[in-house]
Design a protein around this nucleic acid. Structure first.
Lengths: 209, 209, 209, 209
DNA sequence: CATGAATGAGGATTCATTCAT
DNA sequence: TATGAATGAATCCTCATTCAT
């Protein structure tokens, strides 16, 4: 019987990587649209053009798949943030530049991977995230916290609970992406957003000046 | 034939309103904690201390219950916003004061009804909201949009897509409440947040000055 | 509070009889349309313009209500058959006239109480009929059986299992009423049916002649 | 990409057809005994020796299953009737032989598939039958109607509403099977029934002779 | 490794029955 | 006696997971 399976995937050494990645990508897309809890494994399988059973060959459970997607992208975010922080640090930047670098990295992530950003920041993951996934999140949080705290110490950033400031920043970013559903955020909006958010972080200093 | 049934009907009605309200309140609490999709009707029933069947006497389906909760609180928000706008308008306020009034009304709502605010702004309702529920949302959006637009025309508010500015504002507010999970937002944080958000809205003007 | 309860039913000594009868009549109508198993007590209550609880004041259960309806009409049928048999017997009729009298009584019943006839002959009552109800049925069956058997003995009726002949007769009658759903069987059809069914009972004799 | 999946698909399909047929057969048996409305899906599953979920892989709902069973057997009846009509037509039969052929085909069906015949002719399907199922029924009705009408025109069949005659015929047949519940109709009874029913159709002609 | 039919526990919904008023 | 809101067991249906091929 002749069937068109749609894609070459059974050949070569990296086949399982390819399949696994296809599943991860499909899962992200479907989770973003329907919520983790709202998507059926069959939907992911259909989106990945794979049989249901195949998903279970790569991930032991739906929860594990959810964690894998979360970890994949949160780790990507962490990598990006570290790279940005590294560049800023190498340049001997002041705390202000460091915060700005982290902000821009996050913004960049949100623009380049809108689905991933929405999935990560926009949903309630509490019910299924495991320790590994949380560890990545905690590391990112710690990094941002440190940058903000240092900025506050240096007088570049307004006073206030750093955790709250970060949460508001991220929240504003989430709002930004929510304002353009299913579309990339326009360039103009990005510029406005950056100014606006930066003002948020420095308003007190500005007021003082 | 006309008969005076005395209190019988009213009694039934009273009872019914009370039960209905208990279910709505329980549903809000449980939906907020577990997500609409993540809660079982049995959980709502247990939280409301009624039998499962009782919920179906008052709401035809889980979806209808979700809509009712959404509408109840979004309508409350609308009422609050209208009251705030009315007070500001009576005071002959400028556009700046009007926007500030709306912001404070929303903030106040988030502080006084943290569960409701989280339920409304924090979840993906797309899958089950009906036309009625959306109508309330649209009205609120229109109100805020108008205020921002007028503020921009008056030069009180920075330029930029008004929808985006509102989304960022709300997002920041969501982030704020998320930063203090299961607890009221501290007073100090509220003050900081207001300054920060206001700076967001006016940064350009400030920059220009 | 003034409400129109639609009917006077709370006055006089025979009130409960009236209510009970209203429920029985409503039940017959709804059972006939939706099947015993397919009707909800609430439907019967609505059709009887009575509250659900009221039905349970008169009948201990849905099953009891079903039995009561069945018994009511099967008993009516029995009464009619006895009257017809009585008249025929008094007239000193031959077995042929007796069978014809029973047939006409049944036909008359089917024409005058089409819902009742359909309910009685057309549904599977096996699951809920109690001994009392079956007793009435058995008595009718015995009566018909005796008439047919006597007719066969007298050579007026063709040979064959009398139970089968009765079942076919009744079946044909059911078919007749089914052919005119929601409407009375036309006079012309009745005449045809009588000839046809009578031919069924006597065909052999005719063939022999 | 075109791949030869070998027997995989066919295997799946075979398996599926077998399972589907097992479910259909089980459903017929249980529906016949307990009525469509009176049977739980779990009963069908148990009778088919499959899990509940398996039924839903093959039929989207209980209603769809009911329709499928109905259509399966009504279609079989149609096929049988057509074959009988074909044979009678080829033999150049007169209208009398044609009607007799149809009658015998139906009788044969009732004898060979007593459950199916009871399910089809004995229950109220109105509540769940869909257009497809009704189409088959209508086709059978039209076929019988045509035969009777032609027979009447040729003077072989008595006058009267053909729909009514058919309904009475079928009704008598239903009564016949009802007279021997859970058992095959005895040969002797079949012969009697045929004479009786034929007398029903021709009584007038006979009377006239 | 891939497949997808089968499984069955779990969740939404219905409805006969009860009982406080 | 009548009412109808409340009850919860029973029922339909879903979907994560398994496993024979």
């Amino acid at each position: 019987m002749l069937v068109d399976t749609g894609r070459v995937r059974n050949q070569g050494a990296d086949q399982s990587v390819t399949t696994r990645d296809a599943v991860l990508a499909a899962a992200l897309a479907v989770f973003t649209e329907y919520t983790y809890g709202g998507t059926r494994i069959a939907q992911v399988a259909a989106a990945a053009e794979v049989a249901v059973g195949t998903i279970y060959r790569h991930f032991p459970s739906k929860e594990a798949l959810g964690n894998a997607v979360y970890r994949q992208w949160k780790t990507q975010m962490l990598v990006d943030l570290r790279a940005a922080a590294g560049r800023a640090g190498v340049a001997g930047a002041d705390s202000r530049a460091m915060v700005l670098a982290l902000w821009r990295s996050t913004l960049d992530f949100a623009v380049r991977h809108p689905d991933a950003f929405r999935f990560l920041e926009y949903q309630q993951h509490g019910s299924y995230l495991d320790a590994d996934a949380r560890k990545v999140t905690d590391e990112i949080d710690a990094m941002c916290l440190a940058a903000i705290t240092r900025g506050q110490a240096a007088g570049d950033i307004r006073a206030g609970d750093p955790g709250m400031l970060i949460a508001m920043l991220l929240g504003a970013l989430v709002g930004l992406t929510r304002a353009y559903p299913g579309a990339p955020v326009p360039e103009a909006a990005l510029a406005v957003a950056e100014q606006a958010v930066w003002a948020m972080l420095t308003s007190e200093a500005i007021d003082r000046s």
